[in-house]
């Protein structure tokens, strides 16, 4: 997926919305921050998620971190290959490294998301 087509949460998740379905992953910057990933804990299909609330957790050699949902809705699909192929988050974070798909229940939850330019400015600001 082209990063320019995506929207971003300040907590470093990306989201692509099509026909009311949001595909969610974490950005290459987030993967870089976490360093070597060792474990990911994913939600079950059917889990209700809320924008800004944790939906899973990821562990690296050094750090544990929550994964935050960028949207309100219900998880309809989970990338079950990820726990055994965490390298996908490094090699293809915007493609095969997607994490969950959510049926969006509230369009309002999309309003706080950033485009690529704003997200890059946020990262630069944190530096």
């Amino acid at each position: 997926m082209d990063p320019k087509q995506l929207n971003y949460a300040e907590t470093h998740e990306w989201v692509f919305v099509e026909n009311g379905i949001a595909t969610v992953g974490i950005t290459s910057h987030a993967v870089e921050l976490l360093t070597d990933l060792t474990y990911i804990e994913l939600p079950a299909v059917g889990t209700k998620v809320s924008a800004g609330r944790p939906f899973g957790e990821v562990e690296s050699v050094k750090a544990t971190s929550d994964l935050y949902s960028p949207v309100d809705g219900e998880v309809i699909e989970v990338n079950t290959t990820l726990p055994d192929r965490l390298g996908l988050l490094n090699t293809d974070p915007y493609g095969e490294g997607w994490i969950i798909k959510v049926r969006v229940s509230s369009e309002d939850s999309l309003k706080k998301l950033m485009d690529l330019e704003a997200y890059q400015q946020q990262i630069a600001g944190q530096g």
């Binding site: 976490l34 050094k62 750090a63 544990t64 971190s65 929550d66």
Partner: peptide, 22 residues
């Protein structure tokens, strides 16, 4: 053993872990 651990000889005597919140 993880990169960055503190070793004396081959014995680990210091290590750290992190938690990121929002």
């Amino acid at each position: 053993r993880a990169n960055g651990d503190i070793l004396i000889g081959n014995h680990k005597v210091g290590g750290s872990a992190q938690r990121r919140s929002r």
